[in-house]
Design a binder for these strands. Structure first.
Lengths: 414, 414
DNA sequence: CTCTATTTTTTCGAGCCTCGAAAAAATACT
DNA sequence: AGTATTTTTTCGAGGCTCGAAAAAATAGAG
């Protein structure tokens, strides 16, 4: 059950409010913050002078608008980049990357690495992840002692509490508690996030106009994933990261999916499924890895002539359309961002997708549903992880004490 | 954006907290409330003496457990039934009912009425609804001047803000702003709720053990509806009441649904669909109304022998199973309550349903998914409306002032 | 160059609210 | 009748936010 509000929670919540207002707005003045938060000027003044003294915020000289106005110029408040730093670790198919990001959100160091995730044994995979992090810590150029949090993103299913990878297409291994492993290894709070959820978080930061309260990010890649934001909050399952859009059932008993079941949306719209159909292979054929270059070539051929390649994209569009239609029956339509290599072929997918969606309950507003595309998912995932880690720092370290549910993490206060 | 917490919000929130603790717990002592809310004894003491003085709570003599313990006996706190009252209006196919419920949740008056909703013109339908409410107000036995809120429940789609019926299977009419109509007519805040959502709310109150944070209520009746609670909160769409489980797509281009589209879950599992299949009629046959008695007879025949009737229920189970599987892919499995006349035939539905679900992503935990049945939906809907209305009173009238999002409603403070 | 209008930010006292400790109240046990 | 025990109330302390007023910092006017 939710819990009563203590008197001291007040300050903490309002501190968090101010920090988040600054993170969102860039260089707001105290007056602007007072307006957006609804708190009085006195309160904002008190809180921000605390935060400045603690080295969390910094004053920056007046913005350009100052010269136009009459009275005392506004003083912009910004996040102090040196307040702390966070680290992101993104593990995807055959690829591992790490980045250090300062408190203001700028990347200050990074490293990328190819590895063979599909065949790697458990210890080695974990070892690679901890090693790449450790190398960052050992870099003498950086004062990495100030890293306050690690957010790891992975393609696959994670648990609701953001502690472990439960299942992933990039490895046959399951149930790896990466968050706990990193915490034990480095003594820093860590979380394990789902890649598509992080894409959604990143979109919310990149384009808050379009991706605000309700939207959908769909990853069109080898597999089909989804990140969903509803009422401004990231949607997760009751036990797992949830939102396994790719494994909604498109045709009961239909094409063979990578997950071993039949008829999933992914079994028609994943890279391997498009490839399979374009080559006129059986729907029962084992899913195979298809490179991004091959997919781009496939899309080019589909654009050239109306052959089996175009038909394969049509089928993908149909599966995505009926899947989205079912989803929209549940949550109502919302803006969609298509991310990943096949998003670059969305022109081939869209007609069949819209036709399918129009045949569903969500299709009433079919025409008003807008799609946007972004071919490159990795930067989005990293950005999402960074924002997530910074968000935790904002709330749990710089405005500590408010009741948390997560149980672990969040002990080292400045 | 969310807004800073003012100083006076504190008291109001904690008042709401205490009221809700009392509503939930029955007759808790001050000490118990302090424990569940986490607030100090002094605070609870202050707040509850306020609430008693305002006539919202009453002290009741010690419970039976008092004789066992040593010290000063606990004094139970209860909701004062006379504090206020709410009214529920439930409109379903050919049936309209109203009830007056006191602040403690007891029904103190009711009226039910048959009418032909399918053919009624707009004015007449609205007129019947306002008339049945007015008759309650005119009843001299009741001090109905104290009615603080009306909650209307309807089979069909409502908007997110609980103001209007957007679409309903019980009438060809659309977009009737019942909440506004009732507010204008009687000057009392009103809301327009979706029937299945209210079923879910009622289940949460009836059996909080089983139906707590995450569960699904599915209405198996003429149509198929769903009420969904996730993380303790009623799930709604971004624009409408949402959760139109019955119109997820089971088979693209498949059987004709009452909604005019094809292949919806409902087109296989709604009463009319089961009837159609049992009679071996075409899947394109116009949906017809089937009475509850006919459905019960159909179920009996299906249990007797393995004929087309049993096959019809099998198909229904398959559609529901694949639909649930897709839903579980999104939200993970959760306990399910099957409500409505076909819930009484769940024995005929369950085998195919479980078989289908096992073929989906949600089916990993297929065996652990538990189903419960409740053949009678109307009492549930009424209970849900009552609890919802009382919840609004608790929060908006007896603990007023906390920022609201809904824009309208909630102006008459005690 | 000085003065005034204007806008932002800080200061200060007032009013609430919650908390902890201690007191008061109400009962069972001895 | 006295003591132990548990619940509830009382009371002063400490914090927080708010509004009003003061202080600070600038542009424009004369």
């Amino acid at each position: 059950m939710s819990v009563g509000i203590r008197h001291d929670d007040l300050r903490r919540r309002n501190r968090a409010m101010v920090i988040s207002a600054v993170r969102r707005a860039g260089q707001p003045s105290r007056t602007e913050i007072a307006a957006t938060t609804g708190l009085s000027h006195s309160t904002i003044s008190a809180i921000s002078s605390d935060l400045i003294q603690e080295g969390i915020l910094t004053e920056s000289k007046p913005s350009e608008a100052a010269s136009l106005k009459r009275g005392r110029p506004q003083v912009g408040l910004g996040l102090n980049p040196e307040a702390t730093a966070v680290m992101t670790v993104v593990l995807s198919l055959n690829f591992l990357s790490v980045a250090v990001i300062d408190y203001a959100g700028q990347v200050i160091a990074e490293e990328q690495r190819r590895l063979d995730t599909l065949t790697m044994p458990r210890d080695e995979l974990i070892g690679e992840c901890t090693a790449i992090v450790r190398r960052r810590f050992e870099d003498p150029d950086l004062d990495v002692r100030s890293v306050a949090r690690i957010a790891m993103g992975i393609q696959g299913i994670t648990d609701t509490h953001a502690r472990a990878m439960l299942w992933s297409p990039i490895t046959p291994l399951t149930d790896i508690p990466f968050a706990d492993i990193l915490e034990a290894e480095f003594g820093i709070p860590a979380t394990m996030e789902n890649d598509c959820n992080m894409m959604a978080v990143a979109l919310q930061w990149r384009d808050p106009e379009r991706y605000r309260d309700d939207f959908i990010a769909i990853l069109l890649s080898h597999g089909i994933g989804m990140g969903l934001v509803l009422k401004g909050e990231l949607f997760t399952g009751t036990h797992s990261s949830g939102g396994e859009f790719g494994h909604m059932i498109h045709r009961p008993g239909g094409a063979l999916c990578r997950c071993g079941r039949r008829g999933c949306v992914e079994a028609y719209a994943g890279n391997y499924a498009i490839w399979r159909n374009a080559r006129m292979m059986s729907e029962d054929a084992e899913p195979t890895d298809v490179g991004d270059a091959d997919m781009r070539a496939l899309a080019a051929r589909a654009r050239e002539s109306d052959g089996p390649e175009r038909e394969a994209y049509r089928k993908a569009g149909e599966a995505l359309g009926f899947g989205l239609g079912s989803l929209f029956a549940l949550i109502d339509p919302a803006p969609v961002a298509m991310v990943g290599v096949s998003a670059a072929a969305f022109d081939l997918i869209e007609p069949a997708l819209r036709e399918a969606i129009a045949q569903t309950a969500g299709g009433q507003h079919s025409k008003s549903i807008s799609f946007d595309t972004e071919p490159n998912e990795l930067p989005l995932i990293r950005e999402g992880c960074a924002m997530r880690a910074l968000g935790f720092v904002d709330q749990e370290i710089f405005a500590p004490g408010v009741q948390q549910r997560t149980g672990s993490a969040g002990k080292n206060v400045a």
